[in-house]
Every structure is written in C-alpha cells, then in structure tokens.
Simulated assay, not measured.
Amino acid sequence: MNVHWLDAGGRSGHNPLLAEIVRAMPRLTRSERKVAECLLQDPPAFARSTTSVIAERTQTSAPSIIRFCRSMGYSGLTELKQALVAHLSRHEAPRLFLPAEVPADDDATSLLNEAAASLAQLRPVLAGAATEHAIRLLAQAPQIACVAEYPLGLAALHARDSLLRHGLPASIPAPGHWPLTTPDGLTSRASGLFFCQRMPDAVMLDALAQCEQHGNGAVIISEIALASFVPASARLVLGPPCGQDPLLPYLLMNSLLIAGLLAARARARP
C-alpha cells in the first residue's frame, strides 16, 4: 500500500502506533480497514470521537469498531483511544492520506466512463464566471494554502503537489495555524483553496474567515451550493459524483484550475 504521511508542517512523520496499524491493514476485514483509515486520516479527531460518530463516518457498526480494536490487541475502543492519546503526546502526529485503491483491469472501462461523465458535468462550471474569478484570485496570490475536510485530504495533497511541480508556492497549513507567515515573520497574503463535500465544519469556517480577512481570499470547491454566510470569494459547485470515487471530480477540477492559473500567469508576463 502506498501512503503519504505529513506532519503539521508538511514533513514526513512517524508514530509507532500508526505504523503498526498500517502494517496490519492487509489482514484486516473490509469493515475493519474502514475504521483504520478513519483513524489514520485524522488521529486526534478519532481520539475525540464516540463510537456512534466513528460508525457514521466509516459507514460501519459498533461491533466492527470493537473487532478492529481487538485485532490491534486492545480490549475495546476506550483502551485503543487511551493508547492513541499517549502516543500522540509523545510523537509528532502525522496526517495520513490513503489514495483510493486502483481498480482491477475489468473496471477500467467503468473508471473511464466515470471520468468522462465527470468532465461533462464540470464543463458548465468551467464556463461560469466563478471559475474565471477563482483563477484570477489564485493567479494573484503569492502563496496558495490547500485545506480539506475529511475525507478529501488527498484532493488538497494533489493540489499542493501539482502547484509545487509547476514552481508555484503552496502548502497545507495545520488546523489553527492561520494566517500563514513567511520566513521573515510577515503575514502571507495567501489565497486559500478549500475542499468540502457538504456544509463546512466550524474549523473550516474559521479558516475561511481568516483567509478572507488576512489573506488574498478563498476559493471553495464543494459538491453542493453552500449557504450565503459561508465566507468565500469564489464558489465552485461540482454536483454529486458521477461514480463511486468521490475524489475524481475534485482531482479533475484541480488540474483544470491549475491549467487556467498557469495560462493567466503566462499572459501577465511582460
């Protein structure tokens, strides 16, 4: 399994308990793997969550959560969370993003059909004024901060890495670390690129507000039209996913936005 581990500063990280869970993934059942992935995506949030919240987030059941805990050598969720909190207090807590599983060969046609349907669904979004505004906002920013809610961490990681490959400053700020600061201590006029499926949670709403107040504005990409009080300079609504992979429309939109951003910067050069 290919994994990406990032700590709060975007560096590779290590935590023995999390590493043990990753090594155990091949022997876990499908339901147990869902619980493991939920824990690995955001260990501190998992440690604060109740059984019902974890079950809803992973679309599993309380018995599945208990079986996962026992598979890892713990009597139940309480004991696992106690061990997790102890490890997080001793080690830098990495954020682990698990790429979607590569489909089998006989699913290739289905994946291509989903991609084609997603592109067709994005066409009217790209032709809209909101996309043009988003590209202008991102093109003017000295830095772009990529922020995602669970389970869209890979979309933020993809956006950041794609921007960096093109020589554009980008980062994934840790929760609560806004506004961004430059090495000389000055506040960065960063633009925020936000990813969410439904209504943003309180943490993302705060980051959006900080970005609008202290940064260069926020671009938010979501599946549904968001309430007017959500602070964002540009809103891109993808619509419901066309297939089983909810990440696909976000990854396609990333690539299209970055292509537009590069073209805008090229036109602005003297």
Results as ranks from 00 to 15, higher is better:
residue 1 M to R: 10
residue 1 M to G: 15
residue 1 M to W: 00
residue 6 L to P: 00
residue 14 H to G: 14
residue 23 R to Q: 11
residue 24 A to V: 07
residue 27 R to V: 08
residue 29 T to M: 06
residue 38 C to I: 00
residue 39 L to V: 09
residue 40 L to H: 01
residue 41 Q to C: 15
residue 46 F to M: 03
residue 53 V to T: 15
residue 56 E to A: 15
residue 61 S to R: 08
residue 66 I to H: 07
residue 68 F to N: 01
residue 70 R to P: 00
residue 70 R to V: 02
residue 70 R to E: 05
residue 76 G to C: 06
residue 76 G to H: 05
residue 78 T to A: 15
residue 79 E to S: 12
residue 81 K to D: 04
residue 83 A to S: 12
residue 84 L to W: 00
residue 84 L to Y: 00
residue 93 A to R: 02
residue 94 P to I: 01
residue 98 L to C: 14
residue 101 E to R: 13
residue 104 A to T: 14
residue 104 A to W: 10
residue 106 D to M: 11
residue 110 S to W: 08
residue 111 L to D: 02
residue 112 L to F: 14
residue 114 E to R: 08
residue 114 E to K: 05
residue 118 S to Q: 09
residue 118 S to F: 00
residue 121 Q to A: 15
residue 123 R to N: 15
residue 123 R to D: 10
residue 124 P to Y: 03
residue 124 P to F: 01
residue 132 E to C: 13
residue 133 H to V: 12
residue 136 R to T: 12
residue 138 L to M: 07
residue 139 A to M: 06
residue 147 V to G: 02
residue 149 E to H: 06
residue 154 L to E: 09
residue 156 A to L: 04
residue 160 R to I: 07
residue 165 R to L: 12
residue 167 G to I: 04
residue 168 L to M: 11
residue 173 P to W: 01
residue 175 P to A: 12
residue 176 G to T: 06
residue 176 G to K: 02
residue 180 L to D: 02
residue 182 T to I: 13
residue 184 D to Q: 11
residue 186 L to I: 14
residue 187 T to F: 13
residue 190 A to M: 00
residue 191 S to F: 01
residue 193 L to H: 02
residue 203 V to Q: 14
residue 204 M to L: 08
residue 206 D to A: 14
residue 207 A to S: 13
residue 209 A to F: 05
residue 209 A to E: 12
residue 210 Q to R: 13
residue 212 E to Q: 13
residue 218 A to G: 08
residue 223 E to D: 14
residue 223 E to W: 11
residue 223 E to Y: 10
residue 225 A to I: 10
residue 229 F to I: 15
residue 229 F to Y: 14
residue 236 L to C: 04
residue 241 P to H: 04
residue 242 C to P: 06
residue 243 G to L: 01
residue 244 Q to S: 14
residue 245 D to I: 07
residue 247 L to W: 03
residue 251 L to D: 08
residue 251 L to Y: 01
residue 252 L to S: 09
residue 253 M to G: 01
residue 254 N to S: 08
residue 258 I to D: 00
residue 262 L to G: 09
residue 263 A to V: 10
residue 263 A to Y: 08
residue 264 A to G: 10
residue 265 R to L: 08
residue 266 A to K: 13
residue 267 R to D: 15
residue 270 P to M: 07
residue 270 P to L: 11
